[in-house]
């Protein structure tokens, strides 16, 4: 097999893995958008906040340490304990549910029946508030996150491919874990949305707020639930990205990569978020591999957006988006 083709295959696989991570972020957007029509700009920041909180709890960091020290003249930074990963994840999840409740009670409850643009603006405000809040609460330094996920090159794949192609593929174990987790997450979410009572209520709320109210569905409950689930997805994304590249504020920028994923997959489709993520991941890696050198590199910065634009022109609802039902 020609060498170029083998390289391309490796790039393809790595693209798939990167795509899974994009998809994880995009999933959170889809959930909230589906249930409340809110495009949650803060989803990326939520992933960051979740990761910060997770590290903070694991390391026994004192929240608001800087603030407390400055006000009381003390010098505390750590409680002096370490919380095991699984337990810390549970605590962080509780924090995310709390956050969902606060966000809904303080902000979105008061914005029922408002224009989508107003809701969108509210989420932008929320995003930057949460970013600053995370900073004050846990500090701005880059943190290492290790909840015990396997990392580094997968030797089995390396050896197997070496035996076949005479060239060992580099696939990170973490990416494989991320893929499995994402697959499980999507299955769970689809089952939840399609086959459970609350999932059905969530889709009902998405279709028609007033009608949902009229049959006795509590909008507040559904929204807190959806924001909690989105918080959980953000936590998973935060763990994967944080483990990969450290917990830092640039994490919130990956949210922007989720935008082309959403345009491709459709804002309302859970499987669409995954497929969109994979297409973007593979597309940008292969494009960089094939045309990057010709175009001076760094095509990964813009390729996804161009692809998304082309899609918008020809299929505005995305690959899997709900058809806009219009009866004449």
């Amino acid at each position: 097999m020609p060498e170029q083709l083998v390289f391309a295959m490796e790039v393809f696989l790595n693209g798939l893995m990167a795509g899974v991570l994009y998809a994880l972020v995009a999933l959170g957007f889809v959930l909230i958008y589906k249930a409340s029509g809110i495009f949650n700009y803060a989803q990326g920041v939520m992933a960051l906040f979740a990761a910060l909180t997770l590290v903070g709890i694991m390391e026994g960091q004192v929240p608001f340490a800087h603030l407390i020290n400055a006000m009381l003249g003390t010098e505390i930074h750590h409680f002096g304990w370490h919380v095991p990963g699984v337990l810390a994840i549970l605590f962080t999840m509780a924090v995310m549910v709390g956050l969902a409740w606060i966000v809904n009670t303080l902000i979105f409850r008061h914005l029922v029946n408002q224009e989508p643009i107003i809701l969108f603006m509210a989420t932008i405000g929320l995003a930057y508030f949460l970013e600053g809040f995370g900073d004050i609460m846990w500090g701005a330094d880059i943190k290492k996150l290790d909840v015990g996920l396997p990392q580094g090159i997968n030797l089995w794949i390396d050896e197997t491919t070496f035996n076949i192609f005479d060239y060992g593929f580099f696939i990170d174990n973490l990416d494989i874990v991320a893929t499995v987790v994402a697959a499980l997450l999507v299955c769970a979410l689809v089952i939840f949305a399609q086959y459970t009572k609350q999932g059905r209520a969530m889709r009902a709320v998405a279709d028609d707020h007033q009608a949902a109210l009229s049959v006795g569905i509590s909008l507040n409950f559904i929204w807190v639930m959806v924001w909690s689930v989105a918080g959980f997805v953000a936590l998973v994304a935060g763990i994967m990205w944080g483990t990969k590249s450290g917990v830092q504020f640039s994490l919130s920028l990956i949210a922007l990569k989720a935008l082309p994923v959403l345009m491709l997959g459709g804002f309302t489709s859970i499987p669409g978020a995954i497929v969109g993520g994979l297409i973007i991941g593979v597309g940008e890696k292969l494009f960089e591999f094939g045309f990057g050198p010709m175009l001076g590199g760094a095509t990964e910065n813009w390729f996804a957006y161009v692809l998304a634009l082309i899609f918008l022109v020809f299929r505005p609802q995305g690959l899997f988006g709900e058809k806009i039902i219009e009866r004449v």
């Binding site: 059905r200 889709r203 009902a204 998405a206 279709d207 028609d208 007033q210 009608a211 949902a212 009229s214 709900e322 039902i325």
Partner: peptide, 9 residues
């Protein structure tokens, strides 16, 4: 009034 079904369900 106007039925208000959940269209996508």
């Amino acid at each position: 009034e106007g039925r208000h079904c959940f269209e996508h369900l």
